[in-house]
């Protein structure tokens, strides 16, 4: 019988459809894997409520795991505890940076209003002299920044806590 650990290993081959360098495990959206003789249950949680990638991720996981087991694979969605960018693994953060997306800056949001802007280093030249262009970027989870030194426009995976 397949073990839980093996399932986790196979989940390393399921990639995020929007940021294909990250696996679902890197993102920290797989919350639980349960193995029984009759069924495999994999519990995932969405990054953002309206993330359009979730359905795709759900079917990708089912497809991938179904290749390696011959019992039914069930993927369930839970909302609590709510996903946070703290669950992105260290490997995941490194991969994001190499891909050109600034990983979430480890700084809690103290206040919603009138907060000091956070410093996001440029993923290309590492300069800290960058500016936010827009809080909302190409996907729900990213903001849009530009480097004032090398001029590179880049995505920032915004901190969600």
């Amino acid at each position: 019988m397949v073990t839980e650990k093996e399932i986790w290993q196979h989940l390393d081959d399921v990639f995020d459809p929007e940021i294909p360098v990250l696996t679902v495990a890197d993102l920290g959206i797989v919350r639980k894997v349960e193995v029984s003789p009759k069924e495999i249950t994999i519990t995932i949680t969405p990054t953002y409520s309206g993330c359009p990638a979730m359905q795709r991720i759900e079917s990708d996981i089912r497809e991938k795991i179904s290749e390696v087991v011959d019992i039914p694979v069930r993927v369930t969605l839970v909302l609590a505890p709510a996903w946070t960018t703290d669950w992105i693994t260290e490997t995941g953060k490194k991969k994001l940076e190499e891909y050109g997306i600034a990983p979430p800056v480890d700084e809690p949001d103290k206040s919603v209003l009138f907060a000091e802007p956070i410093v996001v280093p440029c993923p290309k030249c590492t300069s800290k002299n960058t500016r936010m262009i827009s809080q909302f970027g190409s996907t729900a989870c990213k903001a849009h920044y530009q480097c004032n030194d090398c001029q590179e426009p880049f995505d920032y995976f915004k901190c969600l806590r």
Partner: peptide
């Protein structure tokens, strides 16, 4: 508990919305 879970999830997004509109 389900309403609490939905609220916890939505609150994180709403903070960004409020900052933007404010």
């Amino acid at each position: 508990s389900q309403l609490a879970a939905i609220a916890e999830k939505s609150l994180k997004e709403t903070k960004y919305h409020l900052r933007h509109s404010a």
